[in-house]
Each structure stands twice: as structure tokens, then as C-alpha cells.
């Protein structure tokens, strides 16, 4: 918004906004980059170039992507049901959706571990059909699923609530099937929100630590995620190694979110 009578206001708000973003977001990231700039390049490459590191990266990004995808597919019908239908227990479910937001991640981790662990009742049930969840990538996936769900539901739900019902009715009156209306009317309307929810769930999955480490088992090259690797390097005073991992993680996350943002902008046009 611009106010022609007081040209100072937009500059002031812009200034405050930028300063805030710099202090909170940019400076810490820059500090990391500057610190790493003093380290010889081949040292960085060396500390990254191991099977253990590469498999951790694959695991972190691959599973986050997978979990975000699953959350988008499952979150859409969940958001739909919560926005469109009234049924007993709806308010409770609606409140439960926010739990992963508010729960300390370690609590979630312990709860998931108890549930899916070898002693837990879901864990033993899966064990009977020959599937092990705890201490495998599947466990990490479950944890990421848990923490990412509210991002999708909470971004999509208000769009569904505010969606003009007459759009669907128009489709029906024009003879379109429900599936056709969903594909050509509803989905395009929800697509930007779905993409936002997806990218937030993905980002959360990549950065997730607390809820993953308990259930993951952290077996090198099998179920060890990058954030854990960073912590373990810090614990052994390998600051260069930890910094190198962090830098790659930072760049990769930034590029991915940038790509999603660009995709979103293109869709909005």
C-alpha cells in the first residue's frame, strides 16, 4: 500500500522489514558461509565425499520429498472432509491436526518410537507381516509424515472453505461428471495452496531432527539423516565437517524452495 500524503511510511516499513529479515535469517546464514569460506575448498569436498555422507543426503532429501508427496495426497482429502462435512468428532480431529505443530519434536519422536518400535503395538503388527518400521528408512518416513501433515491441511483447508460452491454446481449443470469437475475446476483452484503445503512439509522434513532420531536408529548408510550427521560431527569437534554439511543443506534447500516458488508464480499467471 502506498500513502501519498506521507512518503516516509513505506520506506520506514520496508526498512524495518528488511532489517528484521537480515538479522533473523540472512546474518546467521551468511555467518555460516563466511566461516566456510576460510576453509580450503578441497577440505570441504573431502569431508563431503564419503558414502556415509552421500547416503545421508539421499535419505534426507529423498524421504522428505516422498513424505511431502504423501502428505499432499493424504492431506487434500483430509482438508476436504474437515472443510465440507460436519460429523461427530470433527472438531476434535480438526484440533488434532495441529498437534505436530505444537508438540515438542522429541515427544513426537518418543511416541512414534513407542508405537512403531519392536515392543509397540503397531510395530509388532507390522512385524507379523514382515515389515520393520523402527530403525529403518520407513521409520524416518513415518516421522516426516507426522510432522508435515498440518502444513498441507492448514494451507488447503481455508481455500476449500472459501471456494464458491456454485463453481461445482455450474460444472454439474453443464453435464460434467464429479471427477471431471474435480480435475478441471477444483484442482486448479487448489493447486497453489497444495504446492505451498507441499513445499512447507518438504522443508520441515529436511530440517526435522527431534522426531526422527529416536525412530531412525541412526545406522550409518542405512537410516542416518543429514541433521544427525551434523550433530555427530559437532560432538566429535569436527566443525569443518559439520559446516560443510550445513552449507550443502542450506544451498540445496534454498534451490528447491526457489524452484517451487518459481513454479508457483508461473501457475498464478
Amino acid at each position: 500500500m502506498s500513502s501519498p500524503d506521507n512518503s516516509l511510511t513505506p520506506h520506514l516499513t520496508l526498512g524495518i522489514g528488511l532489517t528484521y529479515v537480515c538479522l533473523i535469517v540472512l546474518v546467521p546464514m551468511a555467518a555460516l558461509a563466511i566461516r566456510m569460506a576460510t576453509v580450503p575448498f578441497h577440505d570441504i569436498v573431502e569431508s563431503l565425499n564419503s558414502v556415509r555422507v552421500i547416503s545421508a543426503f539421499k535419505l534426507s532429501f529423498g524421504l522428505s520429498l516422498l513424505a511431502a508427496l504423501a502428505n499432499t495426497l493424504l492431506g487434500l482429502p483430509l482438508a476436504w472432509v474437515l472443510a465440507r462435512y460436519t460429523f461427530p468428532g470433527r472438531k476434535v480431529i480438526d484440533a488434532l491436526i495441529d498437534m505436530p505443530f505444537s508438540l515438542p519434536t522429541a515427544v513426537a519422536g518418543i511416541a512414534l518410537c513407542g508405537l512403531y518400535g519392536p515392543e509397540g503395538w503397531l510395530g509388532t503388527a507390522f512385524e507379523r507381516i514382515g515389515v520393520q518400521i523402527a530403525y529403518t528408512p520407513a521409520g524416518i518416513f513415518v516421522a516426516m509424515l507426522f510432522v508435515g501433515l498440518p502444513f498441507v491441511v492448514r494451507t488447503v483447508q481455508p481455500i476449500i472453505t472459501n471456494m464458491d460452491f456454485s463453481l461445482e454446481e455450474t460444472g454439474a449443470c453443464l453435464g460434467a461428471s464429479r471427477w471431471y469437475v474435480f480435475r478441471r475446476v477444483i484442482l486448479p483452484t487448489l493447486r497453489p495452496a497444495l504446492l505451498t503445503g507441499f513445499s512447507m512439509a518438504f522443508a520441515r522434513g529436511v530440517g526435522e531432527y527431534g522426531s526422527v532420531v529416536f525412530i531412525a536408529g541412526n545406522i550409518p548408510e542405512v537410516s542416518e539423516i543429514v541433521p544427525l550427521l551434523i550433530v555427530s560431527r559437532l560432538e566429535s569437534y569436527d566443525f569443518t565437517g559439520a559446516g560443510a554439511l550445513s552449507l550443502v543443506m542450506l544451498l540445496a534447500s534454498f534451490v528447491m524452495l526457489l524452484l517451487i516458488n518459481m513454479l508457483q508464480r508461473r501457475m498464478a499467471q
Binding site: 464458491d164 456454485s166 463453481l167 454446481e169 455450474t170 460444472g171 454439474a172 449443470c173 453443464l174 453435464g175 460434467a176 461428471s177 471431471y180 469437475v181 478441471r184 475446476v185 486448479p188 483452484t189
Partner: peptide, 30 residues
């Protein structure tokens, strides 16, 4: 959709992401 009855809503309910042409073609394509 089977009644051969057309309905125009008060606020038109045009599909915002479709062009004028595609809005009009909607019922035929469906």
C-alpha cells in the same frame, strides 16, 4: 446435467483459471 436445463448463477461462477473461450467450451469438453 441430464435435465437439459441451463442455470446461470447470480455471480456467474465463471472458472477463473480458464479463458473466456475455455469457459464457454467447458460443457462440450466435459
Amino acid at each position: 446435467g441430464e435435465r437439459k436445463i441451463g442455470f446461470v448463477f447470480q455471480h456467474y461462477a465463471l472458472f477463473r483459471h480458464l479463458s473466456v473461450f475455455e469457459n464457454i467450451a467447458f460443457g462440450l469438453r466435459a
